[in-house]
Every structure is written in structure tokens, then in C-alpha cells.
């Protein structure tokens, strides 16, 4: 990047109107607001059912100043391909075609269409905001819900299975750009989205997105919780280009350092309250092993 994004040089132009229906303290609101700043006006959005559908407004009022087509749940990747196909057919260049979906819409019901678009090498940006459950329908487990999390469909013991690693699945398609980001690090997110706009082919950005009602924490802690996920080494910020994974910003700074125990992250959220200490230990072990690997690779 020529100019590093700073709070001061970030554009004041807003593409999202206030007074929309997002929950108080919504992580997606931050991701959406900052992401659209990076994408800019010359953008077309493709959105399946999700919190974003509601946040974008009920007919006939839209909260977003970017053209958008709402599509069926399973079809986002294909619909984005269709928009790009039309742009090519109509000889319209220079428009960012951006699919913007939740974790369920991306990794569960939408993965077939997304996989197809990646395999075909469609010239689209796909942004997944991962709030780790079906929040729009009232907090049901999804493929990306972490192990041990209480949801309305894992109400007592918490989810038994591990979180599905969507960015790794997408990266396995061999596409040119895969990145992870967090609502708690808006400038890192901004730079990754901005970088994506300068590339072509399928580009995928997976954004960890805290959700106060879904994760059961007070609205003021959205940034704090998001930061803890990164600082404990649980959710890592990276880019994958040409098959090479590079940690970025806040995660990169953790290399070779002592990380905060993941328990700190669990303790500030109601959704982890049924975790038994044994599982906490297991989960900490997994994080430690992962970082040992990162550190080893760093030394090579």
C-alpha cells in the first residue's frame, strides 16, 4: 500500500445512513461502514439473507448508498458471478462486484455457489462477516460456531464440534487473495479490502465480527471482545497470496510473544459460560500448537 490507512486519512464520506436497524453496538455495522469506505462508490453489492438484509433497510428505504441486489440464501457466489458477467457483456469496467454474506450464507448454505465462483476464477470480492452463528434468525449454531458455544440450537452443552475453517477451504481453491480481518481492527480491515480492489479474480476476506446479543456481552465491549480474540491468538489476521500465509498487523506482532490466555476471551462472553475447564485447556492447547507452528515457520 502506498499510503498506510490512518484514522486521520480515512475518508469522511459515509456510505451507510444512520438510523438503520442494526443492533446497538453491532460489529457488522463497523465492518460494513469501514468496508464500504474502502470499496468506494463504484461498487455493486450482492447480499443474501442475513443481518445485513435487515440493516440495509425495509422497502422502500435503503440505508446504503451503494447499489445492491438481494438474492436467495444459497446463491450469493453465483449471483455475484452474474453481475460480473453482465458488466463484462455490457463492457462496463472498473466496478467492484462485491458479495457480502454472513458465515452461514458463506460456509454452510452458500458454500457450493462460492466454491463454484472461486473455481471459475470469477472477478469478484467476497466478504464474509463471521459472527459465528445464525444471528438474524435468533442465534442458531452454524458451521463456524466455535466449539463449546451456547446457541439456541446448542442450548445446554454448547456446540460439540469445532469451528469450520472457511478461509482455509476457500484458499484451497488456489485463488489469488484470501485474507482474514476483524471488526476490532478497522484499519487493518480497510487496508485488506482496499488491496482487494486493486487485484482481480476471486478475492475472499473473512471478517471476525463480534455480536453483542449473539455472544452475550454488553454493547460497549464489541471492540474489546474482538481484540481479545486476536490477542489471545484464537482468531488470526493474515493474508494468503500465492499460497503463502502471512500474519498481518496485530497478529504478526504476537509472533514470538506471550499471548493472553484464551480464557480471558471466553470469560467476557455469556455464550461460553458452559465451557468446562478441561475443554478450555484443550482449546488453549490447540491455540498454542498453532502458534508454535507459526513461530517455527517464522524462524525458517
Amino acid at each position: 500500500m502506498d499510503n498506510k490507512a490512518t484514522i486521520l486519512n480515512l475518508t469522511e464520506e459515509e456510505f451507510v445512513h444512520p438510523g438503520n436497524r442494526a443492533c446497538s453496538g453491532c460489529g457488522l455495522s463497523i465492518v460494513y461502514r469501514i468496508g464500504l469506505k474502502a470499496l468506494g462508490k463504484n461498487t455493486v453489492l450482492v447480499v443474501p439473507p442475513s443481518c445485513l438484509t435487515v440493516m440495509q433497510g425495509l422497502y422502500p428505504v435503503a440505508s446504503t448508498k451503494i447499489p445492491c441486489v438481494n438474492v436467495t440464501f444459497a446463491s450469493t457466489g453465483a449471483a455475484a458471478s452474474g453481475v460480473r458477467g453482465a458488466m463484462k457483456a455490457l463492457k462496463k469496467d472498473g466496478v467492484n462486484v462485491v458479495a457480502w454474506a454472513g458465515d452461514g450464507g458463506t460456509g454452510d448454505i452458500g458454500i457450493q455457489a462460492l466454491s463454484g465462483a472461486c473455481e471459475r476464477g470469477e472477478d469478484i470480492i467476497y466478504i464474509c462477516y463471521d459472527n459465528e452463528a445464525y444471528m438474524n434468525t435468533g442465534i442458531q449454531r452454524s458451521g463456524t460456531t466455535p466449539q463449546g458455544v451456547l446457541t439456541t440450537t446448542t442450548p445446554i452443552r454448547g456446540k460439540l464440534q469445532e469451528k469450520k475453517d472457511i478461509p482455509a477451504i476457500i484458499a484451497a481453491h488456489g485463488i489469488g487473495y484470501v485474507a482474514t480481518a476483524s471488526a476490532a481492527f478497522p484499519l487493518d480491515l480497510y487496508e485488506k479490502v482496499k488491496k482487494a480492489t486493486t487485484l482481480s479474480g476471486p478475492r475472499y476476506i473473512h471478517v471476525h465480527t463480534p455480536c453483542p446479543p449473539g455472544w452475550n456481552f454488553a454493547t460497549r465491549y464489541t471492540i474489546k471482545v474482538g481484540k481479545l480474540a486476536v490477542e489471545t491468538g484464537l482468531f488470526d489476521l493474515y493474508e494468503i497470496e500465492d499460497g503463502r500465509l502471512t500474519l498481518t498487523g496485530p497478529s504478526k506482532r504476537l509472533l514470538g510473544k506471550k499471548r493472553k490466555p484464551v480464557k480471558e476471551y471466553f470469560d467476557v462472553q455469556g455464550r461460553f459460560k458452559s465451557l468446562d475447564p478441561e475443554l478450555v485447556e484443550t482449546l488453549q492447547g490447540r491455540i498454542d500448537a498453532k502458534w508454535e507452528n507459526y513461530n517455527d515457520q517464522q524462524q525458517q
Binding site: V69, S75, A78, A86
Partner: peptide
């Protein structure tokens, strides 16, 4: 666009038509 399913075929058509093609 050689899509991966009929559901996606119609998705492409829907989106392309919405985009004016």
C-alpha cells in the same frame, strides 16, 4: 458462465438481468 448447479444458473441470470443484461 458454466455454473455448478441449476440453482446457481438461475442466480446468475437473476443477477445479470438486474445488472441490465
Amino acid at each position: 458462465i458454466p455454473v455448478e448447479s441449476e440453482h446457481s444458473a438461475m442466480a446468475v441470470c437473476i443477477a445479470a438481468s438486474t445488472a441490465g443484461a
